[in-house]
Write a protein that binds this DNA or RNA. Structure first.
Lengths: 232, 232
DNA sequence: CGGACGCATCAAGATCGCGTCAAGACCGAC
DNA sequence: GTCGGTCTTGACGCGATCTTGATGCGTCCG
């Protein structure tokens, strides 16, 4: 996982830039994965669990900022955005969405490499971030996207997992409908009903008695929270 | 997710830039320390243990890269370098010396703020709590929406909680019917009767003897207040 | 002493938010 | 294209919660 040999996922649709990065990085000992669309990126990210993302903002199928927000939700690896857009507003948006750094094209290879070293240095220094959350009978492994209740594995759909992870990372605290919608469905979502349906599904899978939940608690009129105290 | 209140040490010898940073940061709720030399910076860093460094490279008494390397050795807070030197080589040196980010002057305030947020996010030292109010036997945790009296948990409905939180945040002060109505029921509410009914309910749940309240006191003709003195 | 006023309490009806089910839309895999 | 899984959307019942009105009590003041 240290700098040489680190697995880098390059998300970039321009072949020229891809070739340039491939040459620069592999000669330095990095291993490379390449994606040209957000969809591909997600797939590779789940299947290969890379150590670092290099992300172009101008993807054909989805805004890069959205992809950033999504990845940041469950992947622990650092994200460096590479973009031709140099406007301050673009930088702020990307960084606030969860990017760890932002380089404006054109940039020098050495600067990129230096910033990659910084990012990987951080990742090593903060090992806690991704891995494992345990609350009561529940275990959530965000790197492996794996969930168990009392040791029994439970299969969750992507949305269910995102929702559960959000709750688990804030165990005990109440998350409002608005917060949940924004984090799981993106900033434009408004239908609080989404949350109810997915929550029902989650309960069906995680709770012994979905009608009398012990894990996923409702705060009427406000939102939901994951129970984090088990002293009974 | 921002971290207002973080303590930032600005190391910069040009008064103009210092003034600019002071204005930009303190208006955002950051607390500021200022140093104009490396020596001063070291002193303040030891004595005040800041959450973040903003570091100019061109210091009068020592090269900024050296200072970076030194700080990185023993201080855990992130270091953002601000420099007029835009050469790639300078960036690489500073980053490899231990800086977490590098901005070339002139830069936009918003970008700086965004990168500061990223740095502080990494540091993760942000407690984010502090949503706890304690008055006498009463404890109100707004993040968890949890209320206890003498350690015993009490379940409140949304309106009850809103009302109690309002009183708790203004413990000791008298809140008029009008204020309470506006805050809890919205700006158009007029029925002072709402308040009475909900207050009765609150007392039923919080007071030992609802008829002789010790917490939720009535100020006849004016409004209500939460008792905040407990020297009995 | 009696009436007016403000407050507390109770209970009943109306309302709101939640959980659930199910049908259709969408999407990726084959 | 078809198929299976997943997400969106709508409808509905139920219970919790809020609103509203009625009633009684205490205090202040005429």
């Amino acid at each position: 996982m240290s700098s040489p040999g680190a697995l880098v996922l390059v998300v970039e649709d321009e072949p020229q830039v891809r070739r340039f990065l491939r040459a620069s990085l592999s000669s330095r000992g990095y291993r490379l994965l390449e994606a040209t669309t957000a969809r591909e990126a997600r797939q590779l990210a789940t299947s290969h669990n890379p150590d670092l993302f290099l992300l172009d903002l101008g993807l054909p199928d989805e805004d890069g900022v959205e992809l950033t927000r999504d990845l940041r939700g469950w992947a622990s690896a650092p994200i460096i955005v590479l973009s031709a857009r140099g406007r301050e507003e673009d930088k702020v948006k990307a960084l606030d969405a969860g990017a760890d750094d932002y380089l404006t094209k054109p940039f020098g290879v050495n600067e990129l490499l230096a910033r990659m070293r910084v990012a990987l240095r951080h990742a090593r220094a903060v090992p806690t971030e991704g891995a494992l959350i345990e609350v009561g009978p529940l275990r959530v492994d965000s790197a492996r996207r794996e969930v168990t209740v009392d040791g029994v594995e439970v299969r969750l759909t992507p949305t269910e997992f995102k929702l559960l992870l959000l709750l688990a990372r804030n165990a005990g605290k109440v998350l409002t409908h608005g917060m949940i919608l924004r984090e799981v469905w993106g900033p434009n979502a408004t239908q609080a009903h989404y949350v109810r349906v997915q929550m029902a599904e989650l309960r069906r899978k995680l709770e012994q008695d979905p009608a009398r939940p012990r894990l996923l608690l409702t705060e009427v009129g406000v939102g939901y929270r994951l129970r984090d105290r088990w002293d009974d």
